[in-house]
């Protein structure tokens, strides 16, 4: 008897799980039902005026990093400004979907259909996009890329008590056949490092990269002099430069940075090289099924956010980012080129 109960309870467990998943699918199928889809397309073709569209239900803003992470702060700042400036009268629900390294959230947004698609936004940065392209079949074509909001670039740092004082020494060391250990975070920093390798024309066995989970971990490693140089963004490193724990030695950009990061030269200043830069972008995207009217509405609203004081002084300046708003068309073209380039490097 007891055993039977146990077996039954186990079966129930499994069933519950299956039912849970089934519901999920059902929901998706529901949203994709042709009647609804055609309904929305009808209503949208009725209204010629793009500005006439306005959100009519809660807006879900999906973030694929956990609360407090870079993307989370980015998204919450945008929703705060939209609410404060009266750009959107409906309530924003910021939802942190971190399952499967964020792929689950991205997949879900890519497949959101019907009316919900007009009310779903997702923050995506270049690191997210690279992960998605290299690990899944999900592509940017499945999204409406609404707006590019900001761009970030990196620098190379060393410590005052480390082995190297400037980047020329590092180049010399590598060219004499000795190893230099580089640290940085995953995703976009790796891409920048690889561009640097290519430009310097050195072997990855000599200039070796260690991918840390986050920039702060990489900085921890260089502060203890366990690695020789670190690639980091200005926001994460400014404080350490101010306290003289880190020295910027190379700007991975086509011009020098401002303030205390200004002493770092660009690569072209150091010799016969071209400047290396792989801008790290932050964008807001939406489901591919979002109607054009809604896309125009959100793109415009994001433009107003990018012009607001709260955005410029409260977010960009604080995080030492470069404001670089791109409209819907510009963003789409820019990201398409990004995807094409990145897929090409993956094939290599």
């Amino acid at each position: 008897m007891k055993k039977k109960m146990l077996v039954i309870s186990m079966v129930l467990c499994v069933l519950m799980v299956l039912v849970g998943c089934g519901n999920d699918d059902g929901e998706k199928a529901d949203k994709a039902s042709p009647s609804e889809a055609s309904l929305t397309s009808e209503t949208s073709s009725d209204s010629d005026d793009a500005a006439a569209w306005a959100p009519s239900q809660n807006v879900e803003f999906i973030v694929t990093s956990s609360a407090g992470g870079g993307s989370d702060i980015f998204s919450r700042t945008i929703t705060d400004i939209m609410t404060k400036e009266g750009l959107c009268s409906e309530t924003f629900l910021v939802n942190n979907k971190t399952d499967g390294n964020g792929e689950v959230g991205r997949y879900q947004v890519a497949n959101t259909k019907g009316d919900k698609a007009d009310h779903t936004l997702l923050s995506m940065n270049s690191g997210d996009c690279m992960d998605m392209l290299s690990n899944t079949d999900n592509r940017l074509e499945n999204f409406k890329t609404l707006a590019l909001m900001a761009v970030d670039k990196q620098l190379v740092f060393v410590t005052p008590d480390g082995k190297y004082e400037n980047f020329n020494q590092i180049i010399d060391t590598v060219q004499s056949g000795k190893e230099v250990i580089v640290g940085g975070s995953k995703g976009s920093d790796v891409a920048t490092f690889e561009a640097l390798l290519k430009e310097l024309n050195v072997d990855g066995d000599l200039l070796k990269y260690i991918a840390y989970d986050s920039t702060s971990e990489a900085i921890t490693a260089i502060l203890g002099n366990h690695i020789d140089m670190v690639i980091a963004k200005p926001a994460a490193s400014k404080q350490y430069v101010e306290s003289e724990s880190l020295i910027p030695i190379l700007a991975l950009s086509d011009e020098r940075f401002d303030g205390n990061l200004g002493e770092a030269p660009t690569l072209s200043e150091l010799g016969d090289y071209a400047d290396v830069q792989v801008p790290v972008w932050r964008s807001v995207v939406a489901p591919g099924e979002m109607s054009d009217e809604a896309a125009a509405y959100w793109s415009e609203a994001l433009k107003k956010v990018s012009e607001s004081d709260g955005w410029i002084s409260g977010y960009l300046e604080k995080n030492a980012l470069i404001g670089d708003y791109m409209s819907f068309e510009e963003t789409t073209a820019y990201l398409e080129a990004f995807q094409e380039d990145y897929l090409k490097t993956l094939e290599e």
Partner: peptide
């Protein structure tokens, strides 16, 4: 040092950034 020792620390660190404080050696 502005270095989170744990997952919770990382979330707290995010909080510090959000409130406009820059965690790091100068905090």
């Amino acid at each position: 040092l502005g270095i989170p020792g744990s997952g919770t620390g990382a979330v707290l660190l995010g909080g510090l950034l959000m409130w406009g404080l820059t965690p790091g050696p100068l905090l």
